[in-house]
Design a protein around this nucleic acid. Sequence first.
DNA 1: CAAGCGGATGCACACGTGTGCAAGAAACGC
DNA 2: GCGTTTCTTGCACACGTGTGCATCCGCTTG
Lengths: 327, 327
Amino acid sequence: MSARVTAAEVARAAGVSRSAVSRTFTPGSSVSTSTRNRIEAVAARLGYRPNALARTLITRRSRIIGVVMAAIDNPFHAQLLQCLDAALQARGLAMLLRGAARPEMTDELIHHLLSYQVDGVIVASGLFSSSAAKACVGVATPVVMLDRLMRAAGASAVGSDNRAGARMAAEHLVALGRRRIAFMSGTPGISTSSERAHGFLDGLAEAGLAPIAIASGRYEYAAGQGAAEALLAHAPDAIFCENDLMAMAVLDVARARGVRVPDDLAVIGFDDIPAAALPAYALTTVAQDARAMADAAAALLEERIEKPARRASRRLIACTLVRRRSA
Amino acid sequence: MSARVTAAEVARAAGVSRSAVSRTFTPGSSVSTSTRNRIEAVAARLGYRPNALARTLITRRSRIIGVVMAAIDNPFHAQLLQCLDAALQARGLAMLLRGAARPEMTDELIHHLLSYQVDGVIVASGLFSSSAAKACVGVATPVVMLDRLMRAAGASAVGSDNRAGARMAAEHLVALGRRRIAFMSGTPGISTSSERAHGFLDGLAEAGLAPIAIASGRYEYAAGQGAAEALLAHAPDAIFCENDLMAMAVLDVARARGVRVPDDLAVIGFDDIPAAALPAYALTTVAQDARAMADAAAALLEERIEKPARRASRRLIACTLVRRRSA
DNA sequence: CAAGCGGATGCACACGTGTGCAAGAAACGC
DNA sequence: GCGTTTCTTGCACACGTGTGCATCCGCTTG
């Protein structure tokens, strides 16, 4: 009663060979409908389900996808994770999740995932060592970098069009007539941060402008408060932040100082997390399409699993400017 | 180069038997230090790691924990998930995550997890069918209900002390001199909701009071707005909400109507999600200790995995009242 | 030096499954 | 009726690992 039931027991109970049971649960195999029905009935009665791990041993396909994600409590990441879950489930894939607290332990982390014979890896974490990428290539396991482009050896990548999105923010501020524009960047060394920076600076430069001040808020609310203080000291009439959490920090700090938004100060964020839509913030922001990103990541990975010969590819998801009251 | 290296290849390269390799990677096995060193060197050079799935087949321990969670984008759930990840990693356990969009598919969901031979299951989702619980008992797989108590067959449970927490909220409002108190409940049929309701009503009853109005906000911000409108129509001087998202909805609706908080209206939430601390809300709330809950869930599960004879147990985590400006 | 002993090592089996191959059965065309 | 094709079924091997058992080696002890 407390033992897991195996295919052999089903076979014995149904009076057939174990192969017949195996074929019943393997789509596309040759079994007569009469025996298949009998076997399925017996299997249901005994509560049999094939052991996915034993199956992996012989098929060399685990149907498990390793997912590495940092800062799950970041609202956008949580959203991304939920969409990822849906996209993988739709494809019948299981998700082995590992948070990445320390970036320096990605090596141990990726080897741990590989020991579970994952069919592919989706990395939505910050820093991903190139030795870890090499380890995946070594065992022919496709990798998709999600929201973190990286020109690493043979890894596919899915991300928002951060450059175009940030450029839209710059153009919007310029169109509003703002001239004393400040800029709050995210975590240095992360690709999204430098891409958004480039796009934003390009957008400003096109209007003959440059930021009057720059500070880093490390993509967090708390660090964003300090950076906001620093930027507001330069009396800007607009601030673009590389994510919404930092933009919310700017709004709160500005409010505390009596700076009126958007009259005295326009603020634009990035991500469009649920909190950005709250009436207390009504944040104008560059929206990322989490569902499209997750779907693309799953699709790219599945394709490379099916056809390992395929080269790694890159996929950009468009951003849209969501206008609310902060700009 | 693109093939996974096996213990047999390491053995051949090191000039030993495959058993020696296996023992090298099995703590507590008898191998001389000299051969262990040689094998470890060869293994490192070849990039060998034991196949965790093949190992599971013989040890009957996968070191995988199945986690079922609904509404990952709910900030408190995201926090819980992150703590859960840390707690499992600390114990060397892997996490197989499945979101539960529809409650009616928990059966298929749990069978899917079981087919991966998970050593245990943590359920942080809403409704968990008793037939699913029965399936776990059938294969001797321990289950821990997290944040969702359930008197199901042999499932352990970890949750906040919702009754005591909600009672504290009631007592606080009474101590503030509020008398026209309204109540916004969460999702009907979920244990946390009824527990908080009972604790809150008990706390009011002790002061000879009862809610002047009740509405359900289904634990969501959007539904909370509608419920807030309904409650405010009764002109209450305080509202207790069963989670923070709904309390934020109340604050926003009240603000839009010109109701002053906390002068005209005191608001208390539940969870203490990060957004509750934002200056725009400064929400007084009953804090749940996500880290303690996750640790307890992992500990309880690990204990039952080690000692299957142990009976299922229950564990309550204390809540604390966090006083901010909304009450 | 002989007997004894403990630790290291290899052999072989087991875990639960998918699948190629050959054999058998059934259906079909002439 | 017989040869031929198509479909079904069982046998046996393979996947990569842990571990009991027997063997062997080297060292200690009397």
